[in-house]
Nucleic acid binder design. Structure first.
Lengths: 111, 111
DNA sequence: CTGCAATATCGTTAATCGACGATAACCGAT
DNA sequence: ATCGGTTATCGTCGATTAACGATATTGCAG
């Protein structure tokens, strides 16, 4: 692959032979960014960050979305690892997983 | 909105009245992260960054994807502003828009 | 155990994505 | 003017997303 010779006149100078079709970090970064690749989910994350701890169903009050829709977004965020939930009596406390957020920041910063 | 009184026993402590249902940065961050919320697009960005300048159609050689698919991903990346293209004779040179990348990093770092 | 409030899940629908092949448009060289 | 190589666009198809309402599920209070 990668056309070992010829074919570069003025463009494309470096010509390294990196064979990374799917580096592991690409998958991981895509997964994490995908979690916040939606305005509602960004808002949820920002909301969770603005409070020190969880916000439970208050998220529903803050967003112009149905409860079930918010629940789905929370599920996606949980699956990505960015958000965690903890049962607290009748409600559920959501909070940011700082470790995952840190990794997201790291991976983006390394770009 | 936001239940001005009562209803917080042990959970949810801060109780601020932030009315940000759709902060502008949420939209922007979602747009930028959405651009790299796919392994192939992350790979393309990493590829463009690994070379100093553009890679043109070499991206197709590096990725296990059809040319038309790569072209679509490039279109998405261009629309997000993260990538720019410049016609260079018969080919097209793609390169990272450092300004947009910087903003992405900034928005993520501010989370 | 019965009701109530908070969440999750299910089922549906419309819209979008991701991938591809085929084709068109573009540019330089012959 | 035509050819060859490069890239974009079109049309299609299956899979996934986003949103909702309706319905379970859960845990506490009475």
């Amino acid at each position: 692959m990668q056309t070992p010779s010829a074919k570069n006149k003025k463009c494309c100078g470096t010509e390294k032979t990196l064979p990374l079709p799917e580096s592991a970090s690409a998958e991981q970064l895509a997964k994490l960014t995908w979690a916040i690749a939606h305005p509602a989910r960004v808002s949820i994350v920002q909301l969770l960050l603005s409070r020190t701890s969880c916000v439970c169903g208050e998220i529903v009050s803050e967003l112009p979305l149905a409860q079930s829709t918010v629940s789905q977004h929370l599920k996606i965020l949980k699956e990505s690892g960015l958000v965690q939930g903890e049962i607290d009596g009748p409600r559920i406390c959501y909070y940011i997983n700082q470790k995952a957020l840190k990794q997201l920041k790291k991976l983006v910063a390394e770009l």
